[in-house]
Simulated scan of single mutants.
Amino acid sequence: MLITDELIAHAAASAPRAETDRRLPPDTAKALIAAGFARHFVPARHGGDQGTFTELTQAVAALGAADPATAWCASLMASLARMAAQLPEAGARALWETGPDTVVVGSLSPFGKAAPDGDGWRVGGRWPYISAVDHADWALLCATVEGGEPRVFAVPRAALTITDTWNSIGMRGTGSHTAAVHDLHSPAGFSFPRAALLTGGGPEDGAPCHTVPLEAVNGLSFAAPLLGAAEGALDQWTRYATTKARAATLRPGAPGPGIAALGQALARSAGETDAARLLLERCAAVADREGADITPAHTTRTLRDTALAVDILTGAVNRLLREGGTAGQSEDQPLQRHWRDINTSATHIALRFDAAADAYARPRLGITATA
């Protein structure tokens, strides 16, 4: 199902409450689960849909037009479940033993430490910025093994200590608070090397969605909500500008932007938003088509395109706010909220254009990794 008019209306109506509470309301989280975001990438053998990146991107963007924070959480619910498919069978069975709608959240930043402990590992650490953590059933948390590589551990909700630390000016409704684990024994079968996500492969009977390397789709999961944010801002601004244009026609020379300025802002921002959508849809289509066969060239182009799309979208929304006048910056207007959300999210490390440009350009310019 993923997206319906009812879900879009619910997200728009609940956005002010999410802003105030700095987390998704429980009924909004339940609506996302009922729509199928949590199960979208879950393997079929665990009851999931093992769906496509194209379908998810379109659904997340549609939801983001109503509320970017809700769309961000929906996108990450799906993406973290896709990562959980890397778990050995024992861990996967435990995680999805009650069904495919388990909410998985997490962080791949190696903020934790792990050490061998009998038949498993001893894990501890503190992980900030975990979106929708209040609604989690499980968390995937990355910890560095003493003298070894980072591993990703599946941790049940009962083992998490959640601290209210999310005070950002944008994406407030994501509830990206801090989770901590203290001296936890993680059994064998409940973790995997983080490198497995980077190389892809997934479970033996995995669908194409499980075999795509993380770098080839990671930026897409963060960019899709921002596409929705820009499209929602454009819709809000167009309604405002229609009123302004009528006033300018009736009262030539009155204060405020004229028809020409409004028209240029609309045409350029709408065109840029459409261009960003085309870039992101191509990224999703390539991931769906290629699966495990996706090439490094495809991957670096996707890194480039997702970061570039977010740059374009941010510029388009900034222009709309600049031309929106004082009314568009009112606290009760979605335009300013979408503007805050997209500018906050654009700083995410996965969306940095400088790093993406470097990864794209080096092999094409014959520059070695050590140069």
Rank of each mutant, 00 (worst) to 15 (best):
E6K: 05
L7M: 13
I8N: 06
A12S: 12
A18M: 00
D21N: 03
R22K: 09
P26S: 07
D27Y: 00
I33T: 15
I33W: 00
G36R: 08
F41T: 13
P43N: 04
P43A: 11
P43H: 03
H46C: 11
H46L: 12
H46W: 07
G51W: 06
T52F: 03
E55T: 14
L56S: 06
Q58W: 05
Q58A: 14
V60C: 08
A61G: 07
G64W: 08
G64Y: 04
A66M: 02
P68Q: 10
C73A: 15
C73R: 06
S75K: 08
A78R: 01
E89K: 11
A90S: 11
A90M: 10
G91P: 04
R93Y: 01
G99T: 08
D101R: 10
D101C: 11
V104L: 14
V104E: 10
G106H: 08
S107T: 11
G112W: 12
K113S: 13
A114L: 08
A115E: 14
P116K: 04
D117A: 15
D117E: 15
D117I: 04
D119E: 12
G120T: 14
R122H: 14
V123D: 02
G125S: 13
R126W: 06
P128W: 10
I130G: 04
W138A: 06
A139K: 02
L140Q: 06
L141E: 04
C142S: 14
E146G: 03
G147P: 09
E149D: 15
V155K: 07
A158G: 15
D164K: 13
W166E: 01
N167Y: 12
N167L: 11
G170A: 01
G170T: 02
G173I: 15
T174H: 04
H177V: 02
A180Y: 08
A180V: 13
V181E: 09
D183G: 07
L184F: 13
A188L: 15
G189Q: 02
F190V: 08
S191V: 06
L198N: 12
G200Q: 01
E204M: 08
D205P: 03
G206Q: 07
A216H: 12
N218M: 05
G219A: 03
S221D: 06
F222E: 08
A223K: 09
A233L: 10
Q236S: 08
Q236M: 01
P252L: 10
G256P: 14
G256R: 01
A260R: 09
A261V: 14
Q264K: 03
E272K: 00
A275Q: 07
A276F: 00
L278F: 03
R282W: 03
C283N: 13
A284F: 04
A292F: 00
A292P: 00
D293T: 11
P296R: 02
T299S: 13
T299M: 01
T302C: 04
A307I: 05
A307C: 05
V310G: 01
V310S: 06
V310T: 14
V317H: 00
V317N: 04
N318A: 10
R319H: 02
R319M: 02
L320A: 03
L320F: 04
L321Y: 00
R322L: 02
G328L: 08
Q329F: 07
Q329S: 14
S330H: 14
S330P: 01
E331L: 15
D332R: 13
R337E: 11
D341R: 04
N343G: 04
S345K: 12
I349E: 12
R352G: 08
Y360F: 15
R362K: 09
P363E: 07
L365T: 01
G366W: 07
A369Q: 03
A371R: 03
